[in-house]
Design a protein around this nucleic acid. Structure first.
Length: 242
DNA sequence: TCATTAACTGAGG
DNA sequence: CCTCAGTTAATGA
């Protein structure tokens, strides 16, 4: 794969795992097919049997499930360098949808090539495994968030998690960063209606905590933000040595 | 299309 | 009673 694409994957994996030169070489020699996607376009759907995994090179996407009466729950948000459907390598039928949030550049890597690299390079296999476990840790945190936290805290927590994940790959500069969700989508991630998501955003803004406009969050008061978010970064396991 | 706000309603503490 | 959150509807950017 081109170095630019390999670098986004390597940068992301190195936030949680340790890779040596051989591992880097193995990743750089992975075959990849690059495709452009529009916003809100399905990459894989529940029931699909994909033969490749998708590396998010640029943009944001979500994993979601929809109930029988059509209510959608966003279960995770993904940023560049991640492979949101890595599980399809071992769980062959998709149990949820993977959908773009923004315009996305996606790199598709054949399952065969990924299986091959995990056999040849134990470090890369360990990195994928660790990444999958962190994914599960994030799901646990989301269950706590949606099940137990009050509205404002719930929203602030999602925003801070995204900021921490973006920060480690160098995508946060200053007090402002991209949160490319509409209020409807924010509601779907929080388990509330878009109208209530709007109320919560207004509350946070009126309280001088943060401002949200056109897919971008600006932190108005870092101390208030930390206080509002009830956030402990432990579950992100961002230190490869721990 | 997305965001905002008001008015009303009901659940539940 | 008070707070939270869904529904409906009207309106603004």
């Amino acid at each position: 794969m081109p170095d630019v694409i390999a670098d986004t994957l390597i940068k992301r994996l190195r936030t949680t795992a340790t890779l040596n030169e051989d591992d880097i070489q193995a990743i750089q020699s992975l075959p990849v097919v690059v495709r452009q996607y529009r916003p809100e376009q399905a990459i894989v759907r529940e029931g699909d049997r994909p033969s490749e995994c998708c590396l998010l090179v640029e943009g944001f996407c979500i994993r979601a499930k929809t109930t029988s009466d059509g209510r959608r729950q966003i279960v995770s948000i993904h940023i560049e360098g991640e492979i949101p459907d890595l599980q399809s390598l071992h769980l062959h039928v998709m149990d949820h949808d993977l959908i773009t949030l923004t315009e996305c550049t996606l790199g598709f890597i054949n399952h065969g090539a990924l299986r091959d690299i995990t056999r040849r390079s134990p470090n890369v296999a360990a990195a994928f495994w660790r990444d999958t476990l962190v994914d599960a840790a994030i799901f646990r945190e989301w269950i706590v968030n949606i099940g137990q936290r009050a509205g404002t805290t719930r929203l602030a927590h999602i925003v801070m998690e995204l900021r921490e994940r973006l920060r480690v790959i160098g995508k946060v500069e200053g007090s402002s960063f991209v949160v490319p969700l509409t209020q409807e989508q924010l509601g779907e991630a929080m388990g509330v209606t878009s109208i209530h998501a709007n109320r919560i955003l207004k509350q946070l803004q009126n309280a001088g905590v943060l401002k949200f406009q056109r897919g971008r969050v600006t932190i108005l008061d870092e101390a208030k933000f930390r206080d509002a978010a009830d956030f402990e970064r432990l579950y992100l396991h961002l230190d490869p040595a721990v």
